[in-house]
């Protein structure tokens, strides 16, 4: 019997969770993605971390700003398709030079089985960079924690919008075969 993905050690979620704790992040906002399941479950099980389900990803940009104003630290977890929902919202961290830390699981890359995922998947980096978001793309499991730690420092020490993009090859490709 195969285990559900959430129960399998994926080689990065545990490390990112530890870094969330080390960074003192108390708020994790999300429109979930399958690839984020393990990490979100670890956060949900932690009483010191509040996981907030959003109706649209851009609310997470606002909540990160509000949290920072109130002295707390937030992380927005989203799928690549959701990055398109937050573009004008990114004016907020850019205008205020305040932290906006994001963890993005990529779709629309090599092996994608759903062509509707491809346009936004391809556009994440150019669109984010046009809005002043630094993108760090993890192409291996090992990269994820390395880049996440860098992103934490860039976001909270210097007031930047930073996204760690987790490549589809790290997450695994969703099957659409019948």
């Amino acid at each position: 019997m195969s285990q559900a993905p959430a129960q399998t050690d994926d080689g990065w979620s545990g490390q990112v969770y530890s870094l969330i704790k080390d960074a003192g992040i108390s708020l994790v906002t999300t429109v979930p993605d399958a690839g984020l399941t393990r990490l979100l479950n670890m956060c949900s099980d932690d009483e010191e971390v509040r996981v907030v389900t959003l109706s649209t990803e851009e609310e997470g940009v606002g909540m990160a700003y509000g949290a920072w104003l109130g002295g707390a630290r937030a992380l927005l977890c989203l799928q690549s398709s959701g990055t398109g929902n937050i573009i004008n919202g990114l004016a907020l961290p850019a205008f205020s030079q305040s932290p906006c830390l994001m963890l993005v699981t990529m779709r629309g890359q090599e092996g994608e089985g759903n062509p509707a995922q491809n346009p936004m998947g391809r556009a994440v980096r150019p669109v984010f960079e046009a809005m002043g978001v630094t993108c760090l793309e993890a192409k291996t499991k090992e990269d994820v924690a390395t880049y996440f730690k860098q992103a934490v420092d860039m976001a909270f020490n210097d007031g930047n919008a930073v996204a760690v993009l987790i490549a589809q090859q790290v997450i695994g490709v969703k099957s659409f075969s019948k």
């Binding site: 609310e59 909540m63 509000g66 949290a67 920072w68 937030a74």
Partner: peptide, 9 residues
């Protein structure tokens, strides 16, 4: 949502 983030913090 900014007000929500602030209220929680």
């Amino acid at each position: 949502p900014t007000g929500l983030g602030l209220a929680l913090a």
